[in-house]
Design a protein around this nucleic acid. Structure first.
Lengths: 147, 147
DNA sequence: CTTATATACTTGAGATCGCAAGGATCATAG
DNA sequence: CTATGATCCTTGCGATCTCAAGTATATAAG
């Protein structure tokens, strides 16, 4: 088996996200993706983002974001906001409850990540790992023009 | 954001598996998990494994394996085989068609992995990456005894 | 203005997967 | 032999996510 690194990457992802998800779900009733989205919003200017940008930043499809935000909206963590200059776009805004939620959940979740992932590495190794992983392609950004 | 390595890990996984899946699907009508299972069987002794061991090796749950193998069976790539010494266990065996399938699919899939993943790294870096990833926990193996 | 194209978002359908529960079989101890 | 508990597997259910298609809006070109 030549692609050892890839296989370990795959397996580690499956194992860690499974565990992380179940803890996050149990303690805060959030999905990994939910958390991811909330954090993105938390750090965004005005705690709001266009849905499409949100989708790109967490690597979900547009429809994925729609349904995920549906859930967060009905939980009251996020609200919609229309855009004056462009009626096509909708903003997702963190509500007060959303801010509280993320601040509540952050600590335990970061601790879980540290336990299952970070703690396996020394500071140098973390940096190196981040650098290596940072080279991987994130976007199948643009199809090369066929013409 | 403190957990850079983790975030990159997450995003890279999403992006790469998405692309890898879609190529594998288009060319060979296989899921990433399908391929994974077929490869495990391909390298197993007698090209057969107990379903439960298969599940553990690809990190799926028992029910996940059942349904995945259902698909591969109806595609004729895998067959069931009973175990004489223990009526609880069922083996999954690669059929002739399954062997052919995996031999057909291997080349292009490995090339895709190389393109999207491996090619980002030098030989040394691959080894290092494999080592680092190898430290990550795979099994929530055993609950610590509560007693 | 009209047409064409691109973008933002939603929706219906389908696939994958985990969890919980249940059935069957095995191993062990009384 | 029977009872208990573990293991292997399957099934019902629900959740998540993608793809394809459709709607609405914006932008650009004729």
């Amino acid at each position: 088996m030549p692609d050892t690194a890839w296989l370990r990457f795959l397996r580690a992802h499956a194992a860690i996200t499974r565990e992380l998800s179940s803890r996050l779900e149990a303690l805060h009733e959030l999905t990994l993706s939910d958390f991811d989205v909330l954090v993105q919003l938390y750090y965004a200017e005005g705690r709001r983002m266009r849905r499409i940008d949100l989708a790109r930043s967490v690597l979900l499809t547009a429809s994925g974001i729609t349904r995920l935000l549906d859930g967060l909206e009905s939980a009251g963590l996020v609200a919609k906001d229309r855009c004056d200059s462009d009626a096509r776009v909708t903003y997702a805004v963190l509500t007060k409850a959303g801010v509280k939620k993320i601040e509540d959940a952050r600590e335990s979740h970061l601790a879980d990540i540290e336990e299952l992932f970070g703690s396996q590495f020394s500071p140098d190794e973390r940096e190196q790992l981040a650098e290596l992983l940072g080279r991987l392609p994130l976007a199948h950004t643009a199809e090369p023009c066929s013409k």
